[in-house]
């Protein structure tokens, strides 16, 4: 299973980002969210959802091999990670994050809370297939 973004359904409400922060960090604080919503205004006047598509670019570039695939999601091993943040720089979707007060980067673990809470069906679970994340 993977997450798919249906950009045309997104209305920019950020419910997904708030849910992500609550589920993963127990905080009412969307700045900690592990996905991004890009609001393209005034033109072309639409939204782009930037999700981790588990492409593995972070793992491939990790000098410590601290990012490993587990049940379909790449997960950062906090014991092996040295906090070099190379993964943050190389992430093609810009959804690998360095957070203040944290020495290690954070990323989507495929918990699916965003898809579960999106009121617009703009993020959905799909069987493994080509994702629309662009």
């Amino acid at each position: 299973m993977e997450l798919k973004a249906i950009h045309a359904n997104c209305s920019g409400c950020s419910t997904c980002r708030l849910a992500c922060a609550i589920e993963n960090f127990r905080e009412v604080n969307p700045s900690k969210s592990l996905l991004r919503i890009e609001a393209r205004f005034p033109a072309p006047g639409d939204y782009r959802i930037h999700l981790c598509n588990q492409c593995g670019e972070c793992a491939d570039n990790c000098p410590e091999d601290a990012i490993r695939l587990q049940n379909g999601a790449y997960i950062v091993d906090p014991d092996a990670c040295t906090g070099c943040m190379i993964c943050v720089e190389v992430c093609p979707q810009h959804v690998m994050f360095a957070q203040k007060n944290s020495d290690i980067p954070v990323k989507c673990n495929l918990c699916g809370e965003c898809a579960q809470t999106c009121p617009r069906n703009a993020i959905v679970w799909v069987e493994n297939q080509e994702s629309e994340v662009a």
Partner: peptide, 28 residues
């Protein structure tokens, strides 16, 4: 209309964002 445009945490976005063309001018 181009897209529904919602406020923060809104499941029922009343905002309709679009583009208009008239002889007096065009705009998003």
């Amino acid at each position: 209309k181009i897209t529904d445009k919602g406020c923060f945490s809104c499941p029922t976005p009343c905002g309709k964002y679009g583009h208009t063309q008239t002889p007096s001018g065009s705009a998003y």
